[in-house]
Structures are given as structure tokens and as C-alpha cells.
Amino acid sequence: MSILVDKNTRLLVQGITGREGTFHTNQMIAFGTNVVGGVVPGKGGQQFDGEKGSVPIFDSVREAAEATGANASIIFVPAKFAPDAMYEAADAGLPLVICLTEHIPVLDMIAVRSYLDRYNTKLIGPNCPGLITPGEAKLGIIPGNIVMPGTVGVVSRSGTLTYEVVYALTQRGIGQSTCVGIGGDPIKGMDFIDVLELFEADPNTSEVIMIGEIGGNAEEQAAAYIKQNMTKRVTSFIAGRTAPPGRRMGHAGAIVEGKSGTAEGKIAALEAAGVQVANNPDQIVEMIAR
């Protein structure tokens, strides 16, 4: 068991013929993900011949969903076209959409999120590494060789920092139920609370790691949610303690503005909610192993 993605996920890849789309479709198929089709406007009827399997390409998500019974879509298209790809996936009725694209303007994402909410389409991202259920399926770019099946749920705003933590867990023989990278943009799809809620309800997740960073107040909101609703142990790490205020630290969402968004504030809120907060990523594993 797991959350959001498993053996029954039937995945479409929007932008399957691009450089990233091709490379990662091969990686996903190799991992065991059931990729059922690709979508590239103008290339319908062609075939994606990957290293590990061949899948049909369609002109539209709607056509592809009807022909394949897809229930999820992953987006590998440039920022200029990504909002359109998300609208299209929601319009076609897909319940889960993952957008890896970075550099989508904030005002575009406000419109996208508001539209997707009308369809009850769950969005992960943008600017995220996707998610992976070890032993079952991966939707995105999290390296398949650093995970192992188990019961620790991982949710994170960062990409490579997630790899760091997951890899350390695996090396210690601690497996994961599902790892979800929600992305570092200020306006996105699923946030910490949405994922924590799923982990809390998932019988095969025994505890949760939440990796946050400076900026916004999603960690503070998560802390309030954890205090009220979570019975499972939560361990956390917040990146950016040394970040100077007013400077955007790479992610569009990672900025300390005035008094809001500081690492100290987030850590205090989490500790007050009974979450154990690690001083450094390596320490998370020690805390979980205890």
C-alpha cells in the first residue's frame, strides 16, 4: 500500500518526445511504471519506441485517456506551454496530474490551480521531482535506485535534498511507502497538509518525514494540522537556517520576507506540535532509526 501512485496507475506522458520526456519515460518504464501513452500535439498515431517498451502517441490528452484508460498524467513541457498542458489534463478528467516544469510564472499558476480545483484534479508540482512508490511505480525523476519498499512516508518541497534523505534511509535499510516531492514554487498543487492527510490514512505508512524550507507558511500550517490530526510520528528538517532575509534562495518560494518564512519560526511551530526536527539531513535517519 502507498499513497497516490501504485501498480494500478496508468500513466500518460505529456511531452513524451522531448529530451527530458524521452529520457525519463524510459527510466519510469524501467522502474515498472505502467506508462500507457504519450501526448504530443501533431504527432498522434506515431509510436514512442523506448528502450524498455513502446507506447502509442496521441494528439490530445482526451483522446489518449479514452483510448488507454489512463488515470494520471505527467508533464514534461516547457514553462510557456505547461499551463496549457495542465488545463488539458484536467479537462480530460484525469484525477492526478504531475507537473515537473520549472519557471512557470506565479500568476499563471494562480489561474491553473483555481481551474484544476473545479475539476477535483489533484496536482503535484510544478517545479517538483514527482513521486515514487518503491517496488510499484514512479511518476517523475526521483532516481529509482535510491529507494526501497517500506513504511516511511516522505514529503518534501525540495528535489535533491529529498534524494539525500531517501538515499540515507535506504542505506540504513529503512524502506519508504511513498516519497512525494511537492515542489518549491509559491503556488502549487498539493501542499504538505494534503499529503500528510493521505499518509495518516494509509495503513502501510507507519511514520512520516517532512522536509521543508524557508519561505511561505506551509510548514506552520502543517504543524497545526499535525497537532490536531496526526497520530503517526512526524520527523522534519527545514532547510535555509543560514539564508539571509530578502534574498530568494533558488526556489521561487524560498525567501524570508520580513519576519515571515524564517526557519526558526517553522522549527518552533513544528516542535510545538510534537514533531522532532533534525539539525541536519543526516540526523533525520538517526531519529527515524530510534
Binding site: S156, R157, S158, G159, T160, L161, T162, E164, G184, I211, E213, I214, F237, A239, G240, R241, T242, A243, M249, G250, H251, A254, A263, N279, N280, P281
Partner: peptide, 17 residues
């Protein structure tokens, strides 16, 4: 020198630590 913003911040933090 780090790849990824979150990992870059975490690396800075750990240097300080």
C-alpha cells in the same frame, strides 16, 4: 557548489552547524 536549491540551503546550514 550544490545541485538543487533545497540541498544547497541544507549544505550551507550544515557548514554553519
Amino acid at each position: 557548489m550544490v545541485n538543487g536549491a533545497g540541498l544547497a540551503m541544507a549544505t550551507m546550514d550544515i557548514i554553519k552547524l
